[in-house]
């Protein structure tokens, strides 16, 4: 046996925190690769929505969507909401880690807690975005003319959305100790979030109550930019555009896309801060 390797942990705090973030993300990716079943299963529901509901209801709505296939209209919403489950699952996995003890290994390390939490959020966003790539590959089948520019824009928006969603999940689960509890909670949360985001229907001509709830749902501001990006690449008449992708307005004022994205980003960062604070108090 060789002499004791003189390994002492160095002091460069920032570089250390960066390595911590990276390894936490890397672990999430490895775990995802190992659990491909879950990764694929998470795609089943959005695909059912897109191809089954989209085709089935398509015949009903043909008059209303003009020349546009209902599936084309639904695609951006499906792309955005397909990340919901995966992003949330990443947050749930931290409860899993707590139940099986591994969270303690992470929390006892000589790095800032925020690095661990940031790693978790980025990990969730990365896995969800990878899933987004798979959904994106379906674009040609629903008549969305995918260009490199559009693809990158969509993935960036999906990344932002799933980062915020994972941060939301982390803020929620920080005090929960059992996987069962949190699974139930997520079920209750996910469907309303996506149903009330305008992912599955246009924001025009909504009943007042729904149009208010939709505007209060942060997810709306993540779905809308995705759909706008897609519609910018479609050849459709102004009337169809006004019907299917109307701008979001606050009291008549049109909310620009950059503001929507900034809103989603700041909500994500705030939720991260909440999650970090919560985990700081955990023993």
């Amino acid at each position: 046996m060789t002499a004791v390797a003189a390994v002492r942990v160095p002091q460069r705090a920032f570089a250390l925190d960066l390595r911590a973030v990276k390894i936490v993300v890397q672990r999430d990716l490895i775990r995802t690769l190992q659990d491909r079943t879950r990764f694929v299963a998470a795609l089943v529901q959005p695909l059912l929505f897109l191809f089954v509901l989209g085709s089935g209801l398509g015949s009903l709505t043909r008059g209303a969507t003009g020349s546009l296939d209902l599936k084309t209209f639904m695609f951006p919403g499906i792309l955005a909401t397909s990340t919901l489950f995966t992003a949330m699952f990443s947050a749930v996995s931290i409860v899993w880690d707590r139940e099986f003890g591994f969270l303690r290994e992470m929390l006892i390390a000589p790095v800032r807690r925020s690095s661990i939490i940031l790693g978790k959020a980025l990990g969730g966003a990365t896995v969800a975005t990878t899933q987004g790539i798979l959904v994106l590959a379906l674009a040609p089948f629903v008549h969305v003319p995918l260009t490199v520019g559009l693809g990158l824009t969509l993935l960036a928006e999906v990344f932002l959305l799933s980062f915020t969603l994972t941060a939301l999940g982390l803020a929620i689960v920080s005090r929960i100790r059992q996987v069962q509890t949190v699974m139930g909670l997520m079920q209750v949360l996910l469907l309303p979030l996506s149903f009330l985001s305008g992912a599955l229907y246009p924001l025009s001509n909504l009943p007042t109550w729904l149009s208010i709830v939709v505007r209060l749902n942060p997810l709306t501001y993540a779905v809308h930019p995705v759909r706008t990006a897609v519609f910018n690449h479609l050849q459709v008449s102004d009337s169809v555009r006004a019907l299917l992708n109307p701008p979001i307005t606050w009291n008549g004022w049109i909310v620009p896309t950059w503001l929507q994205l900034a809103l989603v980003a700041s909500i994500g960062l705030s939720l991260m801060a909440v999650a970090v604070r919560q985990f700081q108090q955990v023993e």
């Binding site: 060789t2 390994v7 390595r19 911590a20 290994e105 000589p110």
Partner: peptide
């Protein structure tokens, strides 16, 4: 390896250690 990264061990020492 996860532990080594969290504790910021110098990279070249990780494998032998």
């Amino acid at each position: 390896r996860f532990h080594a990264e969290l504790y910021g061990m110098p990279r070249e020492t990780v494998a032998p250690r």
